[in-house]
Write a protein that binds this DNA or RNA. Structure first.
Lengths: 213, 213
DNA sequence: GTCTATACGATGATAGAC
DNA sequence: GTCTATCATCGTATAGAC
């Protein structure tokens, strides 16, 4: 029985916002609950009361943004598939990849309040801390399977296993890019400032060629 | 005046070995100094005595393996460049990428005692903890510049900036692969077991196509 | 020079008063 | 729901034994 209007207290939302910002800035382990609660202006014990633990908190931080983002990516992938079926042709691989990557890179633009989440997502796919990593994998797995399936439909002459690995290379390139793109710090000086649109074109031509190699 | 024979005590080596293993297993922040010293069978204070701090320790853990590995990759890249000059032709991009990637993926095989380091390297390029990340970047930067230069010689018709980003995509794919390849855990069940040689062929064909896109 | 014992401030987490 | 008090554990620092 899901509540139609989630009655989130201000305290809960304040904690989620502060945690998202600080996790993106300093990582999961690098952020203390005292920093989070201080920034949110609530008591230290409020985190454990509302979320149960620091782990559960980060899970909720991730859920809040990732579930809507995954819905968009899922719809885009299914649209590509449906459009191909309608025309009686197989999907174009570049469109499949675009359907997945574009909402990811543009999530920041279309959700201004989620500005820091996209930084967090980039780091967390390869976070050594299994706490964060496992949550991401758990929520990404069904979507990755869909991406794999549609990719196999787009490139039916390629073995499934081959495309499986190549998709992992693609995700690696994407997440690494998001990570360094989110960090306008150490390496930024030698990277020309790029807008998300240019970056999308760059990465799309690269991964499309790789998938079709 | 460098000592010709570094007189490392057993204690120092024991700490380095334990730290390398535990960092690869649980990450930098996930590993406590008490775990490290307990595993090494030495006193807690020995770390601060021999290395100065936990940060300095991880720097030495990285240095011990990365400096030799980078020497090999540097030599391989320069060999490719020299071989091309000798024949009066430009280097082949696939050979450039091979020179960089092969020693990386085969470091485990050629240095059995460094088994866990390769796992550590995979995670740490995108570690949210800047402590570890910054050390890696610092030691990788000169090598990356060489890789960039040789790549530009191999593909002289492509803009330098374009190749710069494509190299980042390539490294992202490589590091992500090393990370999940090192983790025969959560995702392993759905990945066919692969030897390093097969994986090398897979990733090389992918990134070569991407670079030439 | 090496190493041990011990202590300090900060952390994540919890119990119980209000 | 919110608070204070408290706990074990963390990285670090130092005094002193060998």
């Amino acid at each position: 029985m899901k509540k139609t209007v989630p009655p989130q207290t201000d305290t809960k939302r304040l904690i989620l916002d502060s945690a998202e910002y600080l996790f993106a800035e300093k990582g999961f382990r690098g952020t203390s609950m005292r920093e989070i609660t201080a920034m949110a202006g609530v008591n230290l014990a409020a985190v454990n009361y509302h979320f149960g633990s620091k782990k559960k908190l980060v899970e909720d931080v991730i859920r809040r943004r990732l579930l809507p983002l995954n819905s968009v990516r899922k719809k885009r992938l299914e649209d590509v598939r449906a459009a191909a079926v309608e025309k009686g042709k197989k999907p174009e691989i570049s469109r499949v990849l675009l359907a997945f990557i574009e909402p990811t890179l543009f999530f920041k633009e279309s959700n201004p309040d989620a500005e820091h989440f996209i930084t967090f997502i980039g780091r967390s796919m390869s976070d050594p801390d299994d706490t964060v990593r496992d949550v991401f994998i758990r929520y990404m797995k069904p979507l990755f399977h869909l991406l794999h399936d549609v990719t196999c439909e787009a490139l039916p002459d390629y073995p499934r296993d081959l495309l499986f690995w190549r998709l992992h290379f693609t995700l690696g390139a994407l997440f690494h890019t998001m990570h360094i793109y989110g960090n306008i710090k150490s390496e930024a000086r030698e990277m020309k400032t790029l807008d998300a649109r240019t970056l999308l074109d760059l990465i799309l031509s690269y991964v499309t060629a790789g998938m079709k190699a």
